[in-house]
């Protein structure tokens, strides 16, 4: 029986290993000229991982106070923030701080109104061209899916935010460029956004650069995969169910095949 099961899984295992090799190959390839970001320990990794709520909420603060000046988060609505533990009233208060262009009204005019939970988080620029025009021709990317849009996304974002160092002397950094250890090609348009105590956390956590980077990465991982917690919770149940069902089906198969000569 053990042998048979092994034989059955052999091709699947082979495929698993082969595809693993491919992905690893891509990883190495994607790293290109930049070193691999060091692996971090994230609250949301692993089969049972969940987003560390206080860290996620601090990350939202970092986003609002530091990133939101240039980067949009267009897949996220205020109402989504319920997913990281904000109450309806807190969300309404956040939303009301934003001025949202709505309309046209009965006179055909666009008008501004306070935001409601169903509105998107405000976009710092009216459109992509305006964003590019304000940033030396290169629009700052939307961050909603950033941690899914890079290999080892969370590690990469964290490494990038903490990876600003002085350029090696032999390298000439062009105007409007900044040296970053982990950015492919090293010259990144974004200036170092984080400084120690750049934000003041309400829960008293010391706002070191590393802490801010960790928090905002956790937050951005949530914006990229808001379904993560529900997915893993359901996944455990589904896998347990399928393993039981498969074991039962194996017994059934054995019983039925018993009299075959």
């Amino acid at each position: 029986m053990a042998i048979k099961v092994k034989v059955f899984y052999a091709p699947l295992l082979a495929i698993f290993v082969i595809s693993g090799a491919w992905i690893t190959a891509f990883n190495v390839l994607a790293a290109g000229t930049a070193p691999q970001p060091p692996k971090q320990d994230w609250s949301f990794s692993g089969m049972f991982g969940t987003f560390d709520r206080p860290s996620t909420q601090r990350g939202l603060q970092v986003y609002r106070e530091v990133c939101a000046g240039c980067h949009s988060l267009k897949q996220v609505d205020f109402r989504h923030l319920a997913g990281i533990g904000y109450s309806e009233n807190q969300i309404k208060a956040f939303a009301a701080e934003a001025d949202v262009v709505d309309g046209p009204n009965d006179e055909g005019e666009m008008f501004e109104r306070p935001g409601i939970p169903a509105d998107q988080l405000p976009n710092p620029y009216p459109n992509k061209k305006a964003a590019a025009a304000s940033n030396n021709g290169k629009a700052p990317p939307d961050l909603s899916l950033m941690t899914k849009a890079r290999f080892n996304g969370p590690d990469y974002v964290y490494a990038l935010l903490t990876g600003y160092v002085d350029a090696p002397p032999e390298l000439e950094v062009p105007d409007g460029g900044n040296y970053n250890t982990y950015y492919p090609g090293h010259i990144i348009a974004m200036a170092n956004p984080l400084v120690d105590d750049g934000v003041e956390y309400q829960d008293g956590t010391k706002a070191s650069i590393e802490q801010q980077a960790r928090d905002v990465t956790t937050f951005l991982s949530w914006t990229a995969e808001p379904e993560l917690e529900a997915r893993k919770a359901l996944g455990i149940k589904v896998l347990i169910f399928l393993i039981i069902l498969t074991a039962l089906l194996y017994r059934v198969k054995k019983v039925i095949w018993r009299d075959v000569q």
């Binding site: 059955f8 899984y9 996944g235 498969t246 198969k253």
Partner: peptide, 20 residues
């Protein structure tokens, strides 16, 4: 019976990727 068992094993493999 044999195909159903194979189906169970396959779904376990499939769903692992879907969820994790």
């Amino acid at each position: 019976a044999k195909d159903l068992f194979g189906f169970g094993a396959f779904m376990t493999f499939f769903m692992f990727f879907v969820f994790f």
